[in-house]
Design a protein around this nucleic acid. Structure first.
Lengths: 415, 415
DNA sequence: TCAATTCGTTCAGGCTCTGGACTAATTAAA
DNA sequence: TTTAATTAGTCCAGAGCCTGAACGAATTGA
């Protein structure tokens, strides 16, 4: 389990250097070959060769000459070609399915959410419906001239990522489901193998690409829906822990004498700041209704109450915010993030919960750091995880464009 | 702050491949070139060339022919040469200074601890004394034919690692000390630049190399001395967080209504399981004595009481263990480690504290994981951090032997 | 004694980056 | 308008490092 160092061949070298140049193009586009040589340290010759390979693969485009007001021969600018390759993000959640197509320039090319009550529904049928959504998305991409290079699925539960299986998804009622196989069986073959990840992790990644981005630094993204989870992102990568269970914020104990939790503990955060607990404390019934989101859901009702200044609702949210802040303080002490992002239901409740969260956070994060980390609120919608999933595919291509080189240039209609 | 991909040249390729082969040799020694070619995937030609370079640098040694009972030409075994290169680990702590020399085979070649009351002492004099210790160690290494390739210092406090400065070390009374400069000024030039790290982090790494090793997987190493800290190790590397403050276990809140803490919070773990708190609860006076360790220190007194079955001491340790288990439960929920290692004072108190720690840990780590992580007790002594520091130097050489290639082969007396 | 087997080296070859020379395109100055 | 200066990008020989086939070396089993 130690960090393995792998052999490097000429091919590996080339592949890495392609990623270096592609990354630099994406960061500085439009950019000339000369400038790329400058920032990467490669010779102009090497840059030209690498750019040519990326161009052949359709990942990069020449934009025509640009003059920067300086003298000398004008440069030909290169930028990422967003019109050839795309990533597909998929999401299964308790009350909806989502799909999203992202091009290499990280522009959303297709986005589709369908409400569906997936609780207790047969996994095969759910994945079947998701496959339909995926096919529509791939077709929509095709109409825009895009080739979908790979797909990632967001799932709400604990996963065996290596085996491509869902271990348990309590809110769906799933247990040991071969989600990945079911999905790939229904999909046309893609250049990159399909992958799955936890919904909380992918929502956190979505924040990286569609929220405040790299300004976030290392961050903890709280994604309360039914439970309370957190995605931890360090240096642009998800921190998963040894078994993929890291970020279980919902079962951090905030009150040792609190109410018992389904997990066997007492006073878990989920008992104080889970959606159900908040709604109950606010006096909103019908917590087990089929759909909790949407304009008719109890969450919307809660927000209405809060807007109206309802005392009971306000104090319920305040108390939840305090508990959340307390658990986050523990996370800050242990993980030392730059930023904390409130997502999921907490982004909707932020206007009322935030002061309590901040106060509790400040109280619990001590003398060591000069100030508690920044607290921001996610602006992403319900399909944050689908966005993050699609972005992960794009990320994968950007980090190893060589994966697509043979693939795409071999296409009979390629140009 | 995103994970940067760096350009690869021929030199980089060579350097990495040297590390690959050296790592494989260290893992399987004694091992033949043929087998190395097998496990790395390199051709025999390449392996021979890489091994020759490592041999020239004195990092690797040929052991003579070995026959494995099979037929065919016998192989010449290669192993790591522990007799040429060494790493130096140094440690400044509240009541002692330590130095330790480790050869490439991770055998301890020199180890020296001197008691010294460093509280409030002038940083320059402390580092001066440490430099003396270092020089003795380097000389001792030289007498054994070893060249010290680099040094790492363990310091108890918050550090600016990039700038080589100690920001604050409360227990030493230090504030903004240029420790690294002071040290390098007093030391002969080494092949690798000197480095510093937090004592808790290095103690945790010490556990990796001198404790249960890679069996630990990802782990959290609790290192209570005066305060309570933790080193988090993931995939053999220290997890530091965004500003190097990760693992501040001591200020995780275990009792929101507990006593106020110097950090500004309430009911921090340190207030319940810090050395001072435990001693007070056990009824042992003289907590602020100059030396807390050693056979005459209050910790030894506490152990004596515990051995004698003293009720008050037993319950003090039990309560501390409970609090520790509670804080660790939060760490487990957030970090998902394979193992938790009790180090520092807790390794001495483990026989009495362990049941309480385990019970609280089990209570707080819920349904998601099938079982709480393994709990082990460190067998390392007080200079665990110095060991870890020296091991870090060795690790650095193993991960990039090319750093020493020019260095050593250029030595006039090199052979 | 000879074939089989395994180890390690040698040597030609190929891939990829380097570096200087060269062509191309533009601006500033004469 | 011409010329020099400047910058962009390509060409081509060269060097570093890995590959692969061939070969000599050392040992076992028949």
């Amino acid at each position: 389990m130690r960090n393995e160092i792998t052999p490097v061949r000429h091919g590996t070298m080339r592949a890495r250097n392609l990623a270096v140049v592609l990354g630099e193009i994406s960061r500085r586009q439009p950019v000339s070959r000369a400038r790329l040589a400058d920032v990467t340290g490669f010779t102009k010759t090497t840059v030209s060769s690498l750019v040519a390979a990326l161009k052949d693969a359709g990942l990069v485009r020449e934009d025509g000459p640009v003059r920067d007001g300086e003298r000398g021969r004008p440069a030909t600018a290169v930028s990422v070609n967003g019109d050839r390759v795309a990533g597909l993000g998929l999401e299964v959640n308790v009350d909806y399915l989502a799909a999203c197509v992202l091009d290499l320039g990280r522009r959303i090319r297709h986005r589709h959410i369908v409400a569906a009550d997936n609780r207790g529904r047969d996994p095969e049928r759910v994945i079947g419906a998701l496959t339909d959504l995926a096919e529509t998305a791939i077709a929509a991409a095709g109409e825009q001239g895009l080739t979908v290079a790979g797909a990632v699925v967001a799932l709400p539960g604990t996963l065996d990522r290596a085996g491509g299986r869902v271990r348990t998804a309590p809110n769906l009622g799933w247990r040991d489901v071969a989600a990945e196989d079911l999905l790939t069986a229904g999909l046309p073959p893609l250049a990159l193998p399909a992958d799955q990840d936890n919904e909380a992790n992918l929502a956190a990644l979505g924040e990286l690409w569609f929220g405040d981005g790299p300004d976030l630094g290392s961050y903890v993204h709280v994604s309360g829906e039914i439970g309370v989870g957190a995605g931890i992102v360090v240096d642009g990568r998800v921190f998963r822990g040894a078994h993929g269970f890291a970020g279980e914020l919902g079962h951090v104990v905030v009150d040792p004498d609190g109410p018992p939790c389904a997990c066997g503990g007492r006073g878990c955060l989920e008992q104080a700041a889970g959606q159900e607990a908040i709604l109950r404390a606010a006096g909103i019934p019908d917590v087990t209704a089929t759909s909790t989101a949407g304009p008719d859901g109890p969450l919307a009702a809660l927000v209405t109450l809060l807007r109206g200044g309802d005392e009971r609702a306000l104090s319920a949210v305040r108390r939840a915010g305090e508990a959340l802040g307390q658990a986050l303080a523990a996370a800050v002490n242990l993980l030392d993030p730059d930023t904390i992002v409130l997502g999921g239901i907490f982004s909707a409740l932020a206007p009322w919960a935030r002061p309590a969260v901040e106060a509790a956070l400040a109280r619990g994060t001590g003398i060591v750091r000069t100030a508690p980390p920044r607290l921001t609120v996610s602006r992403l919608g319900g399909d944050a995880a689908a966005l993050g999933a699609a972005a992960l595919v794009v990320e994968r291509v950007m980090n190893d464009p060589a994966l697509l080189l043979a693939e795409i240039s071999a296409r009979p209609d390629g140009r």
